[in-house]
């Protein structure tokens, strides 16, 4: 059981929208399901295009680490969590809609 049943504590606030701020991203997936595979591919592509060199992406397979689902309050899969910069953001789905992902992560699209 989760000792602190509310949402996980937010990481300390860092200045947001600052050009060059680091993105710490976690993608939770369920094994090799089509949605998971798509999500990983879509996200990697988007990050390379928009956040080259200033992002950290960790892909976590919940089938391998199921206990993380509770701690991270995961319900839907795939779920992308923006740990940094604060505030915490969640994007669910196979990341096929790049616009929505960028909007969700609050990233200015490179023109």
């Amino acid at each position: 059981m989760n000792a602190n049943p509310t949402r996980p504590a937010l990481p300390k606030a860092t200045p947001r929208k600052e050009e060059g701020s680091r993105y710490v991203l976690r993608l939770y997936v369920a094994g090799k399901s089509p949605k998971s595979v798509n999500a990983i591919a879509n996200l990697k592509k988007m990050c390379e295009e928009n956040l080259q060199g200033r992002y950290e992406l960790e892909v976590i397979d919940l089938y391998q680490q199921p206990q993380l689902a509770q701690g991270e309050q995961i319900i839907a899969l795939p779920t992308l969590i923006r740990k940094l910069p604060a505030p915490l953001r969640r994007i669910i789905g196979d990341m096929s809609n790049t616009e929505r992902v960028l909007l969700g992560l609050d990233i200015q699209k490179k023109t």
Binding site: P5, A30, S33, I75, A76, I92, G93, D94
Partner: peptide, 26 residues
């Protein structure tokens, strides 16, 4: 086992299809 599921609509953005596999796993 007590499990509290926290969902906050304002924090969630949707991009493409999803499922509730997370809930199943949990």
């Amino acid at each position: 086992v007590l499990d509290y599921v926290y969902i906050e609509r304002s924090e969630i953005e949707e991009s493409g299809e999803y499922d509730l596999e997370g809930l199943f796993i949990r």
